[in-house]
Design a protein around this nucleic acid. Sequence first.
DNA 1: ACACTATGCTTAG
DNA 2: TAAGCCTAGTGTG
Length: 280
Amino acid sequence: MPEGHTLHRVAASLSHHLGGRTVTSTSPQGRFAAGAARVDGRRLVSAEAWGKHVLVEFEDVAEHVHVHLGLFGGWKVTVPVMGTEAVPDVVGEVRWRLSGPGATADLRGPTACELLTPDEVASLLTRLGPDPLRDDSDPEQAWQRISASRSPLATLLMDQTVVAGVGNVYRAEVLFRHRLPPFLPGRELDRPTWDAVWADLVVLMQDGVQSGRIDTVRPDHTPEAMGRDPRVDPHGDEVYVYRRAGMPCLVCGAPVLTKVVAGRNLFWCPECQRADRLSP
DNA sequence: ACACTATGCTTAG
DNA sequence: TAAGCCTAGTGTG
């Protein structure tokens, strides 16, 4: 379930439960054995998220552990509770296990789990656009790219060098919430609208960090509020268009459309997000 | 038992 | 544009 909010949540959890603690680092599956051994027995300094990337820093180790989940990867952080095992059994393919007195974190299925030198970390970070979840981000940098681009907004929002941390759900939802046509070229977006989109991403994604899920639907737009049956619309409580192809738009009732764009499923409402409805 | 899906990204052609 | 990569859950026979 990896969009930016997931990784910020994980990074905060690791920092909170294991920060400053000496940790055991292993690779039960074996594919990160050397890297895991490099930081085993060290003190965890910090875990930080940049877009969808997580960097974990250890005392007296120059390299950072870099993790990217890809499409299928996931973290599971277990906090010991009275009456449960302090360290859970390994289940499935655990690439990396970080364990300390405060928690055990298991990483499965990542695209990247590797040691990066400081130079490599720097070059990774320069490739990333501003992240709505970081307060050191400057949305102006994204605006420079968007306002100069002929690419569709839907493509630009998924481009991690433009905005870091937005994935397929947030892209579809933020476009809908601002009634923006997904294929509108970036250069045709106006500045006030971009500012509003950015501000909305900040709110939505911060909410996602808090709740651990993506909820974008205003209370007055839920299927129940609109008099529809929530049972036939399993996603309608949470999102406007993502994975709701063929279902009625929560606002206007038109069937939600879907199309594969650059290998990813895009969802939008053809009525609410019409180019000729854009305010001048 | 298989088939299929998924909130991602990189590299080759 | 397509292929490859990584895993688990769900659905179908």
